[in-house]
Write a protein that binds this DNA or RNA. Structure first.
Length: 272
DNA sequence: AGCGGAACCTGTCGGC
DNA sequence: TGCCGACAGGTTCCGC
């Protein structure tokens, strides 16, 4: 479900109501979501103050008092929802955090791929430590990217999904970024020119920034923490548009499969 | 090391 | 209507 813009939208929502709240208690309705011993998790977070929430790549990190963090990943269908404490428990609620006011924080997840983990040290976390550049990192230049992708045979679209290269892009924005850059998704990453990589970096920042402005894209069931929708789905140019006309050249948008995942492109505007 | 495919789990949608 | 396969915004594991 969520890529960087959706994750950041959730974080902004969480930061508007959670900081300075204390976790009074918690309830785990699906044990597989929590990494490690569930009881240990519940005891570790109990009575901690939520100091702030931020992200690395698509990981959501809650900073708790006493140098503890909850590292969360939404994977395909996870979401955080803030609701009145006494609202009814719903089918896909997996973990509930009861706060010291009238609210509860719910981790809801249809498919149960999402994860929550309590850690004291972030840098040794298995997923976090292998993340690549943040999209807006000043160190991320066309030359650095070319160095990383040198001698790699994977398609550029596949490379954009590799979180150890750039952290935060997923399947929707990979297609959108390459369309904006005018680059075919099938080109091997290793043969891209400096100029092409520069276009990709530029388009990536532009597309992700626009998506952030619109609070992400709600194409199936992504919702903000108050369950309102993002609006960026209304501005997608190629994702899910197969059969429709390209906004630039009117030729048909095409869907192809790369590494078992859909890619959308305009064969006219995105040349090899 | 790098690559592609299967697996993880549940729900929805389209076709027959 | 009912069943069945395909597909879903992610990551990890496994085998080559």
């Amino acid at each position: 479900m969520p890529e960087l813009p959706e994750v950041q939208t959730i974080i902004d929502g969480l930061n508007s109501c959670l900081p300075d709240r204390r976790v009074v208690s918690s309830r785990i309705l699906r044990e597989s979501i929590v990494q490690g011993e569930p009881l240990r998790f519940r005891k570790a977070i109990r009575n901690r103050i939520i100091e702030g929430i931020h992200r690395r790549g698509k990981y959501i990190i809650f900073d708790l008092s006493g140098d503890l963090h909850i590292v969360a990943h939404l994977r395909m269908s996870g979401k955080f929802i803030v609701q009145p404490k006494h609202s009814r428990i719903r089918q896909h609620d997996r973990v509930i955090f009861y706060l010291d006011n009238h609210l509860k924080l719910i981790f809801s997840d249809v498919r149960c791929f999402g994860t929550l983990e309590a850690v004291t040290v972030l840098d040794t976390h298995r997923g976090l430590k292998q993340l690549g550049f943040d999209p807006w990192d000043r160190q991320l230049t066309a030359d650095r990217l070319r160095l990383m992708l040198r001698r790699r045979s994977i398609a550029v679209k596949t490379a954009l999904l590799d979180q150890s290269v750039i952290a935060g892009i997923g399947n929707i924005y990979a297609s959108e970024i390459l369309f904006a850059a005018g680059i075919a998704p099938t080109i091997p990453a290793g043969v891209l020119t400096r100029k092409q990589l520069s276009a990709i970096i530029h388009s990536m920042r532009y597309v992700l920034s626009q998506a952030l402005i619109y609070n992400g894209a709600s194409i199936s069931d992504f919702r903000r923490i108050d369950e309102k929708q993002g609006m960026f789905q209304n501005f997608l140019k190629v994702y899910g548009k197969d059969g429709k006309q390209c906004i630039h050249c009117s030729s048909g948008i095409v869907k192809i499969i790369q590494n078992q995942r859909s890619t959308f492109l305009c064969p006219q505007c995105q040349h090899q």
